[in-house]
Amino acid sequence: MIVPLLLSILMILAASAAVWMAKPVHAGLSLALTLSIAAVIYLVLGADFIGLVQLMVYVGAVAVLIVFSLLITRRRDEEEERSLRPKALVMGFGCVLPLLAVLAYAVTGGIDIKPDRWEPALPLQELGKALFTDYAPAVLAIGVLLTAVMIGAALFARETRKETK
């Protein structure tokens, strides 16, 4: 149990770095580090599939997307960024505190979160079947959502290009 614990501490450090770094690129790279530590935690706990998917989807795709969006969006002054910090801190804790409270309540035994069976390494075929039979509506809904997001992103990119001309 000691390894996941140490990894969690590392992950919290990386996540705080992602929030605290002044340069957006540093923040993005710290986020990539945070996400890959999460993947390592999954692997250590024996959930191979979810760990590798985490690495592929989040580190590979999301990190690159974050970095790209940072480069495309307006570059904010570092001073301005620092001056915004008190406000950001208050807002951030305001959003996170309820979540933390629920988590603390659950961990201390308030909610019965014990699963039916401890089997993180679910056979892949079962997972696939469940996704495309029981959870098919959810998969379809996410597909529609992502398509909409992609079209929106394309439109957004187009408009900014017109502005620069």
């Binding site: 790279l29 990539a32 890959s36 993947a39 599939f49 590798l52 998917v53 690495l55 592929m56 580190v59 590979g60 795709a61 990190a63 690159v64 970095v67």
Partner: peptide, 13 residues
Amino acid sequence: LLLFFAVGSVTEV
């Protein structure tokens, strides 16, 4: 196969 593509995505970063 999943590992192959998962570690490959680190290259981009």
